[in-house]
Nucleic acid binder design. Structure first.
Lengths: 343, 343
DNA sequence: TTGAAAGCGCTAACAA
DNA sequence: TTGTTAGCGCTTTCAA
């Protein structure tokens, strides 16, 4: 084990009491300038580092924040985590990341685990399976700091930060319509998720604006968020086997977009000739795809940063926080060939 | 703050002493069956969770492991972290992730930060900039558990886990040679990294086997690991502007592979017509590229798992660990069109 | 079989 | 200005 100096060691070495040393180290007023200098210099010399565990025990705070996401190996989330980490690091918090793999049970277990670790707050993006948010509601009512990002809980009035999913979807769908596509399907994540609802609404609104009839069969949910490959494949095939096969599909999630492209490729379908594609994704490799993919991109890094700032502010608030805000950030539509109407 | 029951609460409620409760909870022998049952039932009822911070303070262990990687938003590392998390979670450790962004200074700060947090051990993959590994050497000599993965420190005799970079590179290069390419360049990460050396050696060995002359100008290092876009662009352009322009390039890292593809696309170069490509990358979207990319893939998830298992074993060893192993895992070459000789 | 008490590193109320 | 002491939650020796 790697050990370091304690306040006690310093006290002993200098012939002082631990409280004096503590005071010197913490820049208290009630301390002699001489003593203070002495302690500080010695502490510097032996490279003294306060033991955060002891501090945590004392202060009843762990200086850590728990993160609940479906997966790290997902461009959106890895970028968001990057943002989370950048803020937390500077503010002296450490970040404990847990993955749900889109399972509600795993999510519950993770939250329990994080609580038992006494995290000071939670940054959560719900799993695709999660329909029941009562555990969060309970915590929130007890005054425990929680910030939701991306996949938020609709029925909990706490801080939230989300992309403008409606507009992102509207714009993407409108792009397809303006290109001349009329039979536009929508492949999306779990119907449990608010983002799925919002993205559908944006999609539907664009259809309505151009008086295109919405065909219920053109809407496909993947309730496991695409974690089960068969689920996506089944949905895509159903779409392609319809009597009136869609000529374009707007996809509502990162994982689904990439999965769908794999499936289409495997089936030998040509994009955009056989079917045009626009999808939500934060992968920066989509420009290199065949064809280059038209995407809706979210500012994941900033979302992570904002969520973390909000959370830390809530954690450190002297007063119980009663006012909660929902921040919305804009998405970016990047038009490329996958959404172009073939001549 | 969200609070939970303590051993003291239970003791008070049951009219017992804290030590008795502690014994009951820990399945000690020296306890009456009745009392034990009573305590256990009550603990269950109130959903008692031991305070890990108090435990850490007592045991002088934090039950956390520190991870040092260059970036989370990188397919190789996000997959490795996934593996790390999967093991750590089950073994009751939590994982603190830090990112170096390929900077040595940031790496040093991260290690200090992790140590001040009293992590029980370190899982590290060096930054591209890191030439000086003395901080690790110092810790290792003090008996502090460290496991290196992927980007290992050559001069420290501790546990390491790496891919068979030599063979991965040899196979990739051989594939290009067998296809008929003769002017093969090598674009790789920092010359500080052992993996760069190993990958170069594999590359060179394949050249030698087929009696192809190695042209020093065909070797390009990116000492910032591709974090600086200009650095990659400069290297690629130099390669393309050579009198005897290479007809293929073997790329030694994930980030570089994707960057290089972006640059070639921007320059309007055709792959593999103008230049063929094989690259190390763990992205699962490369199949969708134009053209589909021939890649060397590492079992990142397993590497993360193995490294974590080794680390936890070292941490929990009763005896000072003296024997260190270097585990090697095989890479996978996935041939696709980017390495095919045009007819 | 159970309880009292000390101690892990630190802070802070209280005393001097 | 400095020291003494208690206490954060828990384990563990020692005593009963």
């Amino acid at each position: 084990m790697f050990e370091s100096y304690t306040i006690k060691d310093i006290a002993k070495a200098l012939g002082l009491s631990t409280s004096t040393v503590s005071r010197a180290l913490n820049g208290s007023y009630e301390i002699g300038a001489e003593t203070k200098k002495l302690v500080l210099e010695y502490a510097e010399k032996v490279n003294y580092r306060p033991n955060p565990i002891a501090l945590s025990l004392k202060e009843q705070k762990s200086h850590s924040i728990g993160v609940v996401v479906c997966e790290v190996a997902n461009d959106y989330f890895s970028q968001a985590i990057n943002g989370i980490e950048s803020i937390a690091y500077n503010r002296g918090y450490h970040v404990i990341i847990t993955q749900t793999h889109e399972s509600f049970d795993r999510e519950t277990a993770n939250v329990q685990h994080l609580l038992s670790r006494h995290v000071d707050g939670l940054l959560v993006s719900l799993s695709a399976e999660t329909a029941d948010t009562s555990q969060y509601k309970y915590l929130h009512e007890k005054g425990f700091p929680i910030v939701f990002f991306d996949r938020v809980a609709p029925d909990i009035n706490t801080h939230k930060i989300i992309a403008n999913n409606f507009k992102g979807s509207f714009d993407a769908t409108e792009l397809l319509i303006k290109e001349g596509f009329t039979k536009i399907a929508h492949l999306t994540s779990s119907s449990n998720l608010v983002i799925s609802r919002e993205r559908f609404d944006g999609f539907k609104a664009a259809l309505d604006k151009y008086s295109l009839h919405f065909k219920p069969g053109y809407l496909k949910y993947c309730n496991h968020g695409g974690m089960i490959q068969d689920e996506v494949e089944f949905a895509v095939k159903e779409l392609l086997n319809m009597d009136e096969r869609p000529d374009a599909v707007f996809i509502g999630s990162d994982r689904l977009t990439i999965s769908c492209m794999h499936i289409l490729k495997k089936m030998g379908m040509k994009v955009p000739e056989d079917i045009a594609i626009v999808g939500f994704t934060n992968s920066d490799a989509t420009e290199l795809f065949d064809p280059p993919l038209t995407v809706v991109r979210q500012p994941a890094f900033q979302i992570g940063q904002m969520a973390t700032e909000m959370l830390i502010k809530t954690i450190e608030s002297k007063w119980p926080v009663e006012e909660f805000t929902t921040e919305q950030v804009e998405t970016e539509l990047i038009p490329r060939s996958s959404s172009q109407k073939p001549l």
